[in-house]
Structures are given as C-alpha cells and as structure tokens.
Amino acid sequence: MALSFGLFSSILPPEATLALRAPPSFSPHGLRMMRTVTFATVSQSEPPTRKIRGIMKPRKVSPEMEALVGVPEISRTQALKQIWAYIKDNNLQDPENKRTIKCDEKLKKVFAGRDEVGMLEIAGLISPHFLKSES
C-alpha cells in the first residue's frame, strides 16, 4: 500500500497500482466478496472457581509449627514466608555464610533439634509438621 501512494507510484505500471489500491474485500476479478456477520452473546455466568491444591492449600500444622507461625492452619508457601521473616527479624543467618541459619529454641523444635540448618533444607524439614487432613 505504501508503494501506491508514495514516490514509487509513478514508476509502477497502472495495473500494479490498481492491485495495490484495491481494498481487501475486492477480488482480483473485480467481484465484490461478501462477508458474513455473526453475532456472539457474552455469557453472564461466572467462571468456575478452581479448587486450591498442593502447596497452596492450607493444612493443619503441629503445635511446634503453630508456635512459630502463629496460626493453626497455613499453606506451605505462607509458612516458608513466615519462617524466613522470623529468621530475618531475629538475625539468625550466619554473617559469613548467609546460606546457613543458626537455630534458636523455636526453630530447633521445628528443625528436628538441629543447631544449624542450610537454607535449602528448610522446605524438607518443615514437611513433617504439616498434618494429613481427613478429607
């Protein structure tokens, strides 16, 4: 289309500029193509809500974990956030090696009585504190 209106329109033969100027609803044979109009209605129903599963589903926790996070039922992701907030607030990361956490009494109860825990071990150590639900 830019060629038909631009500087090069005088260079092209007249047949080529006609083809470039024709709107897309015209066929090359000069016949007009018909478009069919379809109507769609918007559904007014709300989309179905998804069931929360996996690590996002709140589960009951052990009394030791409840003492640390402060609630009797929490999801794994939220529990990890709460634990990391507790570690940061109480300055429990090793200053030389930030990947090591020095456990205080509350953390020792959750982390199987260990004095030091690696940051990648936390998710595995909190698993036994999430109780199985009966449903």
Results as ranks from 00 to 15, higher is better:
M1P: 13
A2N: 08
A2Y: 06
S4H: 08
S4E: 12
F5V: 12
G6Q: 03
L7E: 15
S9W: 04
S9C: 07
S9Q: 13
S10E: 10
S10P: 09
S10R: 11
I11R: 11
L12C: 02
P13Y: 02
P14N: 11
E15A: 12
A16W: 03
T17L: 07
T17C: 08
A19M: 10
A19W: 13
L20K: 06
R21L: 15
A22G: 07
P23Q: 07
S25Y: 13
S27E: 15
S27G: 12
S27T: 13
S27L: 14
H29Q: 08
H29P: 10
H29M: 07
L31S: 10
R32T: 14
M33W: 11
M33K: 10
M33E: 14
T36I: 11
V37R: 12
V37D: 14
F39M: 12
A40H: 08
V42T: 13
E46L: 13
P47Q: 10
T49S: 13
R50F: 05
R50E: 05
K51N: 11
R53C: 15
R53V: 15
K60T: 14
V61D: 01
E64R: 05
M65A: 08
M65G: 08
E66C: 07
E66M: 06
A67D: 10
L68D: 01
V69C: 04
V69N: 01
G70N: 03
V71D: 01
P72S: 02
E73F: 01
E73D: 01
I74T: 02
I74W: 00
S75K: 00
T77P: 00
T77Q: 11
Q78E: 15
A79S: 08
A79C: 12
A79T: 04
L80H: 04
L80G: 10
K81V: 10
Q82M: 14
Q82D: 04
I83P: 02
I83G: 01
A85R: 15
Y86H: 00
Y86F: 12
K88G: 11
D89R: 06
D89S: 14
N91A: 15
Q93D: 00
P95H: 05
P95S: 05
P95Y: 09
E96V: 14
N97G: 00
R99P: 02
T100S: 12
K108N: 03
K108H: 00
K108S: 05
K109E: 13
K109C: 07
V110T: 00
R114I: 09
D115I: 01
E116R: 13
V117T: 05
G118C: 04
L120H: 08
L120D: 12
L120I: 07
L120R: 08
E121S: 14
A123T: 13
G124Q: 07
G124R: 06
G124I: 03
L125P: 10
L125I: 00
I126W: 00
S127P: 00
S127R: 10
S127G: 06
S133L: 09
S135V: 07
S135Y: 09
